Simulated assay, not measured.
Amino acid sequence: MKVTVGVQAVILKNNKILIIKKQDDDGDVTYILPGGKQEFGETIEQAVCREVFEEVGITINVDELLFLREFIGSNHENAETNKNLHIVSPIFLCSMQPGDDISLTPPNPDPDQIGAAWINIDELGGLRFYPKQLVPQLIEIASGNKPRLCYVGDIN
């Protein structure tokens, strides 16, 4: 077992946030920020750009680090299934290239990805969104306020 790095992007536009829709093994839909695992030899910035392009089909600018999150699977729901997961996730505020829009057919989506969408930031709390503990801070960021903490700990 090892610790992995999983990068994520917060992309905001007109009071909406870009999210990835995934279908769980049980058929439920969950929502997450675009992102994925860093590959060997790749910088964190390169990883977030590649992952967003693969999942959404857009080129982004990595603007600033918002959060550093950990996910230690044995500490959360589905602990038995996720007991071997320990992921450190730098979460960046990113911006799209002018005139770019999300692709209807992304280049390389994850197998469980069923879509990408812009949702109103105020609707985020009503969705099965992860990491759910960041929803209030994401709403604040969309309002122009900086996050209170960068390191947010082991959250799901």
Score class of each variant (00 low, 15 high):
residue 3 V to G: 06
residue 5 V to S: 01
residue 10 V to M: 07
residue 13 K to H: 09
residue 14 N to I: 02
residue 15 N to Y: 12
residue 15 N to S: 14
residue 16 K to M: 04
residue 18 L to M: 09
residue 20 I to N: 00
residue 24 D to N: 14
residue 25 D to N: 13
residue 26 D to E: 10
residue 26 D to C: 10
residue 27 G to T: 05
residue 34 P to W: 01
residue 37 K to D: 08
residue 38 Q to F: 02
residue 38 Q to K: 14
residue 39 E to M: 02
residue 39 E to S: 09
residue 40 F to M: 00
residue 40 F to Y: 12
residue 41 G to K: 10
residue 44 I to R: 03
residue 44 I to S: 04
residue 46 Q to A: 15
residue 49 C to S: 15
residue 51 E to F: 02
residue 52 V to M: 04
residue 54 E to T: 04
residue 54 E to W: 01
residue 56 V to A: 00
residue 56 V to H: 01
residue 57 G to Y: 05
residue 62 V to N: 00
residue 63 D to L: 10
residue 68 L to G: 06
residue 70 E to K: 11
residue 70 E to A: 11
residue 74 S to F: 08
residue 79 A to H: 06
residue 81 T to C: 06
residue 86 H to Q: 13
residue 90 P to N: 09
residue 92 F to G: 02
residue 93 L to K: 14
residue 96 M to A: 15
residue 100 D to A: 15
residue 100 D to I: 04
residue 100 D to W: 03
residue 101 D to Q: 15
residue 105 T to R: 13
residue 107 P to D: 08
residue 108 N to A: 12
residue 108 N to L: 11
residue 115 G to Q: 02
residue 115 G to K: 05
residue 119 I to Y: 12
residue 121 I to Q: 08
residue 123 E to F: 10
residue 127 L to N: 00
residue 128 R to G: 00
residue 131 P to Y: 01
residue 134 L to C: 07
residue 135 V to H: 00
residue 139 I to C: 07
residue 144 G to E: 10
residue 145 N to K: 15
residue 149 L to I: 11
residue 152 V to E: 03
residue 152 V to C: 08
residue 153 G to F: 10
residue 155 I to R: 02
residue 156 N to I: 01
